[in-house]
Simulated scan of single mutants.
Amino acid sequence: MTRVATLAEIAQEAGVSAPTVSKVLNGRADVAPATRERVEKLLRQHGYRRRGGDTRTSPLLDLVFHELDSSWATEVIRGVENVAREEGLSIVLSESAGRLTPGQSWVDGVLARRPTGVLLVLSRLERSQQEQLAGRGIPFVVLDPAGDPGQQVTCPRTTNWDGGLAATRHLLDLGHRRIGLIGGPARMMCSRARADGYRAALDMAGIAYDPELVRAGDFHHEAGRRIGVELLGRPDRPTAVFAGNDLQALGLYEAARELGLRVPEDLSVVGFDDLPLARWVGPPLTTVRQPLTEMAEVAARLVIDLARGARPAALRVDLATTLVERSSTAPPREAAGTVGGGSVEPW
C-alpha cells in the first residue's frame, strides 16, 4: 500500500509550517491565496483526505447569485427555502456583484463554514475552485449555468431553446414576419439557447434571419426600454418582439408608450420567465414560463443527495418550459404604420 504523506511532510514540501497546512485543510481564510493554492496542489497530489472530526459539516446550504436585483431571484430563493425547511437546513445567501465566477473570498468563506452543499445560480466555478470544494467534501450544483460547467457538474436547467422556439412560433402563427429579438448577455448559455430557438423558428418558417432586428440586452428593464426605442424607431420596425425575459418585455412596453405605439394593436410582445408581475401588467404579458421555483427545489434536493453520498441519475436535469398566452400578442395590422401615429393606452 502507498503511504499517505503526513501534514509535516506536506508542510516541508510546500515550504510552510504544519499549522498553515492545517489551516488550509480546515478552510481558514487567513492564508495567502498563493500559499493556499500551493498547499492544495500538494494535498491533491498526495491524495490526502480529511479523517475523523474533519468531515463534519454545518446544517447550511450556500446559495450564490451573480446578481440579486429582481423577482426572478426571489422565485429561486423560495424554491431552495422550501427544501431547506423540510431538511432542517438554513440558507447562506451571497451575491458576486455581477461576476459570473465568485471571488476567492467567497470560496474561503464556504471552506470555513463547511456547508452541507453549495448552489450556484447563473454562475460558474473555476477548475481550481471546484477542486477546493471537492477537497473538503463539499458538493455543489449549478442552477442554469452561465457557461460550460464541465462534464461532471450537476446542472438543473430549463429548456431555453424550446422556449425561444415556442415564443417565436407563436408570433409566426399570428402572422408576424418582422420579429425582433432583445436577447440576454451573449456570455450566458440560456441567452444563446433562447436566441437559437428564435432563429430556428424563423428558419423552419422560411423567414430570413435579419441581424438588424436582433440586439443583445442584459435582462434588465432599462435595456428593454433603450433597445426597444432603437428597434421601434426604425422605418421598417418589427411588428412583434421576443424580449428574452419579462423585465426586458416591460422595458419594451415603456419604449412603445414613449413612441405612441399600442400593445398589442401596433406591437406584439412576448417575454420569458412568467414572473408573478407578468399577469398584472397592462396588457397582461404573453410569456414563456420556466418553472423557477421547481427548478430550485430540484437543485436543492440534488445537492443534499450528493452530500449524503448518492449519485444523481443524470447530471443534466431539464425542466420543461410552457408558453402562457395572454393579451400582449395579436395578429399584425396589414401595414405597420408610422411611429407616433397611435394613441397611448394607460398601463
Results as ranks from 00 to 15, higher is better:
Leu213Arg: 02
Gly260Trp: 02
Ala5His: 12
Gly135Ala: 10
Ser70Ala: 10
Thr74Gln: 13
Thr321Cys: 13
Thr286Ser: 09
Ile91Pro: 08
Arg85Gly: 08
Asp54Tyr: 15
Val121Trp: 01
Trp72Asp: 03
Ala200Cys: 06
Leu247Ile: 13
Ala335Ile: 11
Ser17Thr: 13
Ala134Val: 09
Gly27Asp: 06
Gln12Asp: 14
Thr57Met: 10
Asp246Asn: 07
Asp218Pro: 02
Leu171His: 03
Ala193Ile: 04
Lys23Asp: 07
Ala14Ile: 00
Leu319Pro: 00
Arg50Trp: 09
Ala195Arg: 07
Glu294Ser: 10
Gly147Arg: 13
Ser71Met: 09
Ala256Pro: 01
Thr6Glu: 11
Leu61Pro: 03
Asp246Gly: 12
Arg50Gly: 15
Thr116Trp: 04
Arg308Phe: 07
Phe65Met: 05
Glu40Asp: 12
Ala166Asn: 04
Phe272Glu: 05
Pro33Met: 03
Val21Arg: 00
Thr74Ser: 14
Glu86His: 13
Met204Gln: 15
Asp266Val: 03
Ala18Gly: 11
Glu75Gln: 15
Val83Ser: 03
Phe219Gln: 00
Pro291Leu: 12
Glu86Leu: 14
Leu231Val: 10
Arg85Ser: 09
Val153Asp: 00
Val324Asn: 05
Val263Gln: 01
Asp266Leu: 00
Arg113Ser: 13
Ile10Glu: 02
Thr20Cys: 08
Arg311Cys: 10
Glu325Ala: 14
Asp246Arg: 04
Val317Glu: 03
Leu143Thr: 01
Val121Ile: 09
Val270Leu: 05
Arg199Cys: 06
Asp274Gly: 01
Arg326Gly: 10
Pro283Asp: 03
Leu60Arg: 14
Gly184Ala: 12
Gly88Ile: 04
Pro332Phe: 12
Val339Trp: 04
Arg289Trp: 04
Ile91Gly: 09
Val141Trp: 05
Arg262Asn: 12
Arg78Thr: 11
Arg177Asn: 03
Thr55Met: 14
Gly337Tyr: 01
Gly197Pro: 08
Asp203Tyr: 09
Ser96Arg: 03
Glu131Leu: 10
Pro238Tyr: 02
Gln129Arg: 04
Gln104Ala: 15
Arg36Gly: 00
Gly244Gln: 05
Leu143Phe: 09
Leu120Lys: 07
Thr158Asn: 13
Glu87Tyr: 11
Val281Gln: 03
Leu25Glu: 05
